Amino acid sequence: MSNKDNLFSEPLDQIAPFRFDESVVSVFPDMIKRSVPGYPTIIAMTGVLAARYAQANSNLYDLGCSLGASILSMRQQPLPDSCKIIGIDNSTAMIERCRSVLDTDSNTTPVELRCDDITAVDYDNASVIVLNFTLQFVRPELRNALIQKLVASLRPGGILIISEKVEFTEPHLDQLNMDLHHEFKRRNGYSDLEVAQKRSAIENVLIRDSIETHRKRLLDAGCDSANVWFQCFNFASIVALKA
């Protein structure tokens, strides 16, 4: 069972840059559910999309897999024969806890977990690639090359699912959606202090792109379509198809 996220509930003399360490892992399910509008829907539909586009004898990647929510969502679906799910995360604490979570799951689709840098991995024979709130933590100068490598590894008919916190090019719209997101967090029990301190911790760690930037990057890399299928405030999920 997840602990309640109270990491920023007391005033901090120094706010360190946000890291996916053991303290975050211990409260992560509560943190992301109370912080990301639409998160349960995105995770549930990740599995549905995977079931639609997964191909027999192929790999399904979950990049930045954290505690394995997207893996479990895909694994619960009737996937084609000889599919393999590969989860990759650069946080040792996340991977260790993810293994424990998967040990309690009775579904039988094979899963391989790796603790690695997703920008340094070689990908192949993919029919589904998932990056749920992952690309935003990759250094901006590495994002184009990563997406190009992922699209190159996709089979024809394969998909990428990319969910992100996004920015808006119009300043007033960007501010409105940030304000709505902060109100969402307050209504989920976070105090103004928690909202402010978490924002300071994650600033310069989570770097947002616009939806337009994401779409252009995917199309330039060789996807034939890239469209938003879910959005709530400044959180969006895009599905991109390689025909």
Rank of each mutant, 00 (worst) to 15 (best):
L193Y: 10
L63K: 08
L60Q: 04
A221N: 02
L7V: 09
Y61N: 07
D30S: 09
P11H: 04
V195A: 07
V24F: 05
R75S: 03
I42T: 03
I32V: 08
E194K: 08
D209S: 12
L131W: 01
L146H: 05
L218F: 03
K185C: 10
L63I: 14
L193H: 11
N125S: 11
G189P: 09
I162S: 02
F28I: 07
Y39D: 00
L72T: 02
C98P: 01
L154K: 03
G38K: 05
M94S: 08
S200I: 14
A126Y: 02
R52P: 03
P80W: 03
V205P: 04
K185H: 07
V166F: 00
P156W: 07
E183M: 13
V130M: 08
I85M: 05
D30L: 07
D179K: 15
S237T: 09
V128E: 03
F18M: 11
R97C: 08
Y190P: 03
L102I: 09
A201I: 11
R52M: 10
V101K: 08
Q77N: 07
D30I: 08
L49W: 09
V36R: 00
T46Y: 02
E167N: 13
A93C: 12
V25R: 01
V195E: 05
S210L: 04
A69V: 07
V121R: 10
V36S: 02
R199P: 09
A240K: 06
E141D: 14
M74K: 10
V24A: 11
K33A: 13
A16Q: 15
S91E: 07
S58H: 01
M74F: 00
I88T: 04
A93T: 12
A152N: 13
I162Y: 00
M178S: 14
K198P: 07
L146P: 01
L241N: 11
L241P: 04
S26F: 01
M45F: 12
Y61S: 12
L154V: 06
P140V: 11
M45P: 03
N204D: 13
E96Y: 06
